[in-house]
Design a protein around this nucleic acid. Structure first.
Length: 851
RNA sequence: GCCGGGGUGGCGAAACGGCAAACGCGAUGGUCUCAAACACCAUUGAGGGCAACCUCUUGAGGGUUCGAUUCCCUCCCCCGGCACCA
């Protein structure tokens, strides 16, 4: 190693040089198999630590480190508590970006993906994390995706997969488009610019709604409240009634066709003054009057081009059109006009609503715009307002029904129940529950994904590929011809197959599975990665799942994390696993954005490459800096400002450990104890500081408060720096403090901790044993105990004095001391406090003095 | 728009309803050095005062409380998600 000139002249010890230390330890750990988990070891409690696997986009950036290095610290912390930690890793290797790159550069998506994986493996290893690479999973490998196919067939048998027609965004040149591939207000294709159309296709669905109620139950899992809330709202359970309106006869139809609506407010049925169907509602065609036809068709086409976000915006001015037909309200026989409007969605409820403008905001604005009657049917007891200037949706106690025939004057909730019960007796309604959650649209019209194990035969229809013919291999040769259109559609070798039932020529399904399939069970496969006769090794899975801790980005709060829960329950019901939930404990860290505040991506050019930083500062500094930046669940724009401070801290740990006696020239008081301290006191202060830090750092690790964990370690090294070169430096208490610093630092900065630990072992004449298999130290409560404490004294909430009191002082004695304080006496000027409040058992005293 | 999260010094941030600004960056001054860098020491929310000290300050406005960054209401701004990005 080359010593720089100044370090030779300045210090006796060698400098902290992470670039030589870190690769050496990474190699030594690998050689020793330090991070290979023995999955059969039952002598210690298991800890399955899972972090969301990555899409191999090829631009591993600092955001990946932001998730993984604190996760690694969690794993190491648990290991030091005697647990058998399993922290696997893999790649979510199917997906759109590989195809985009392939089409653009005329290369193979598999080659592109595997090349990126190679790069990312190397980059990930430079973190020095305790990943067990021997269980790696790559989802685009047949050894993984064949089990997607197998699992899909089981779902099909269980009735949890089905086929249904639904619309996709479609470009005539590039086929189906993802939402992000549709650009601009005019909705054009990102690649060719063509106008995006809707096309209705037969597609596969998974029945997530079958588990809607069970998915609402989070008992038994320890998930953050916001995520539970988001999932609950996403599922969107609504209780109410389904009410059957009928059509009024006209010259085009005999009438009495059923128009079912779902409502959460059956109590407002008398206030229904019109009905609104989704533009896609199946009865729109037959009900529309001839003279309305042209306008209605135009409106339907226009609605098809709107996004759902747009359609549901309550901000936007309502649009809609009468179709020239009427419906009959079953409760009073009233005829009301039927409209179509895009704020009613075909996929929610029955795709039709009874509109009650008096008691629904959207219906209200629609009624105002189209001049429709607004009839109030619910009122608070003393509220006699007839003319509403906005929808009355509030729930006041004692509300009663008005203008509601025989139900008038009944309490609103009871009236609603009675209306529904009476309708039910006549077959015109029933209580009903509806969900916002929809079934999982599982088909993708793309090449780079898991092929469906499905064959279409003209005689036998939809035929599953028999298990013994799996996997259905995705062809490696692919010719995109510069278009996004699925190349499987013209791959004759893939398409042509004999029907497994009748042997006649048939055709393979060319859609592939949504990549959320892969992420819905990959953690089971980590435990079974070499199993060749089934997707999961039941013994391993029973022993190791549910996952104890899952970490990953909050952007997955709903979709991936809900699909995974659904899939686990479905696997349970198929008899594959014995658990209800996949992840016991979840943590969503924040997202690191580019310096511009935007999501990091190659195309934006705002990616921070970790390699540069590692070369400059070493992995430990980067790891610690990412933890120190702020709360882990917060994220924020990337800025390297402050990284030098963390690097300085590690340098300080280095020199305090190796060179405790050095006296710095810049400090006039260096090397001497403070005037009011003797050696015994100073030694005790060091020990107390170390153990107090240990207490705080332990709870910070447990709570994932890594930023304050680092801050506390910095404070402790500041204390040690003050005593550096003094008579107590290098003494037993000092050495104990250093030992604790290294152990506390080990999960977060594993290389420097290991290096310094090994040097101490060597100095003590002992052979190497990794710091990462040490036990987490115990707090010595005796040395942290204090005999006095400081009490802030407030007058009317403003701090006016501080008293030092014995720790065990009682309330009366404390009050006496406070009132006897000269400063307080001066400020009181003879007044007697109206109240004396001792907060937190005398932690603070507040005197309330009327002005 | 809807759902969820956030807004505190010049900057990243800290604070079980109880001392706002810990820790770090930056800045300023100093020690060391021929000099610079490194390292180290000191100061550093704003305003006032020679000083002891005083006043103000947690996106805006209101409320609850002896006491609010923290709880409640209204509003503004930023981030994530909204079902084919992963």
């Amino acid at each position: 190693m080359t010593q720089t000139h100044e370090s030779e002249t300045r210090t006796r010890i060698e400098r902290y040089d992470p670039t030589s230390i870190e690769p050496r330890w990474q190699q030594r750990w690998a050689d020793a198999g330090l991070y290979l988990t023995d999955l059969h070891d039952t002598s210690r409690p298991k800890f399955y630590l899972l972090t969301m696997y990555d899409y191999p986009s090829g631009d591993l950036h600092i955001g990946h480190w932001y998730v993984k290095t604190p996760t690694d610290a969690i794993g190491r912390f648990h290991r030091m508590h005697g647990e058998n930690v399993f922290m696997p890793i893999g790649f979510d290797a199917y997906g759109l970006p590989a195809e985009n790159a392939a089409i653009k550069n005329n290369i193979n998506p598999r080659d592109w993906t595997m090349r990126n994986i190679e790069v990312m493996r190397r980059q990930l290893r430079s973190m020095g994390a305790m990943f067990d690479w021997t269980h790696e999973v790559v989802t685009s490998d047949p050894s993984f995706y064949r089990w997607n196919q197998w699992l899909f067939l089981r779902l099909l048998e269980a009735g949890l997969a089905y086929r249904q027609r639904s619309a996709v965004d479609w470009c005539p040149n590039d086929g189906t488009l993802a939402r992000e591939q549709v650009e601009g207000a005019d909705r054009h294709c990102w690649r060719c610019g063509a106008k995006v159309e809707k096309r209705v296709l037969d597609q596969w669905y998974l029945k997530t709604t079958a588990y809607a109620d069970e998915l609402l139950d989070f008992s038994g899992i320890d998930w953050p409240e916001p995520i539970r809330l988001m999932q609950t709202n996403w599922i969107g359970r609504s209780e109410g009634g389904e009410i059957v309106f009928t059509t009024e006869p006209s010259d085009r139809q005999a009438g009495a066709a059923e128009l079912r609506v779902f409502t959460t407010r059956p109590d407002t049925l008398f206030g229904a003054t019109f009905m609104v169907l989704a533009p896609e509602h199946p009865l729109v065609g037959t009900l529309t009057a001839p003279d309305r036809r042209a306008e209605v068709d135009a409106y339907v086409a226009q609605a098809a081009n709107r996004t759902e976000i747009d359609r549901l915006s309550t901000d936007r001015e309502k649009t809609g059109i009468a179709i020239g037909a009427e419906a009959i309200n079953p409760v009073n026989g009233e005829r009301i006009p039927i409209f179509i409007a895009d704020y009613v969605l075909a996929g929610y409820g029955t795709g039709a609503i009874m509109a009650v403008p008096a008691h629904d905001e959207r219906d209200f604005s629609f009624a105002i715009k189209f001049g429709l009657p607004i009839r109030r049917v619910v009122a608070a007891p003393d509220d006699e307002t007839a003319e509403l200037d906005s929808a009355y949706v509030a729930h006041a106690t004692g509300e009663v029904l008005v203008n509601s025939g025989e139900y008038s004057d009944l309490p609103a909730d009871e009236g609603g129940r009675r209306i529904l019960a009476d309708l039910e007796a006549r077959g015109a309604g029933r209580t009903a529950v509806t969900y916002r959650l929809r079934d999982w649209l599982f088909s993708r019209q793309r090449y780079w994904g898991t092929p469906f194990p499905i064959i279409y035969c003209e005689v036998d229809g939809i035929v599953p590929v028999p298990d013994d013919q799996l996997p259905v291999l995705l062809p490696d040769q692919v010719d995109y011809r510069g278009s996004g259109e699925n190349p499987l559609n013209r791959d004759e070798a893939f398409l042509r197959v004999d029907c497994p039932v009748c042997g006649r020529p048939a055709r393979r399904e060319t859609d592939t599975m949504d990549t959320f399939m892969d992420s819905s069970w990959y953690w089971f496969r980590y435990l079974s990665h070499d199993k060749e006769d089934g997707p999961i090794d039941r013994t391993m899975v029973d022993a190791w799942t549910a996952v104890d801790q899952y970490t990953g980005g909050a952007e997955h709060a709903v979709m991936h994390l809900l699909y995974s829960r659904f899939f686990t329950k479905a696997m349970r019901d198929i008899g594959l696993v014995g658990q209800d939930e996949p992840f016991k404990r979840l943590f969503n860290q924040g997202q690191i954005l580019g310096a511009d505040g935007e999501r990091m991506s190659k195309s934006r050019g705002n990616v921070q490459d970790p390699d540069d930083l590692v070369a400059r500062y070493g992995a430990d500094t980067i790891r610690l800096f990412l933890m120190f930046m702020g709360p882990w669940d917060q994220g924020g724009p990337w800025s390297p400002t402050g990284i030098g401070g963390v690097h300085r801290f590690l340098n300080r740990v280095w020199s305090l450990t190796l060179d405790p006696h050095r006296v710095e020239p810049g400090d006039p008081s260096a090397g001497r104890l403070p005037a009011d301290e003797n050696e015994t006191g100073a030694a005790a202060a060091i020990l107390a500081a170390a153990h107090r830090t240990l207490r705080g750092v332990t709870t910070d690790y447990e709570a994932f408060h890594f930023n304050t964990m680092v801050a506390k370690l910095m404070e402790l090294t500041n204390v040690l720096t003050r005593y550096r070169g003094s008579p107590v430096a290098g003494g037993p208490e000092w050495e104990e403090a250093i030992r604790l610093v290294l152990l506390m630092l080990a999960p977060a900065a594993p290389h420097i901790a290991e290096e310094l630990w090994s040097r101490r072992l060597e100095a003590a004449g002992r052979s190497w044993s990794s710091i990462h298999v040490e036990q987490w130290p115990e707090v010595n409560l005796a040395v942290v105990a204090e005999s006095t404490r400081e009490v802030p004294v407030q007058i009317n909430g403003k701090v006016r004095d501080r008293l030092v009191v014995p720790v065990g002082i009682d309330a009366a004695a404390l009050e006496a001391l406070v009132l006897a304080s000269p400063r307080i006496q001066t400020l009181l000027a003879g007044r007697t406090p109206a109240r004396v409040i001792q907060a937190g058992g005398g932690k603070l005293v507040n005197l309330v003095v009327p002005e």
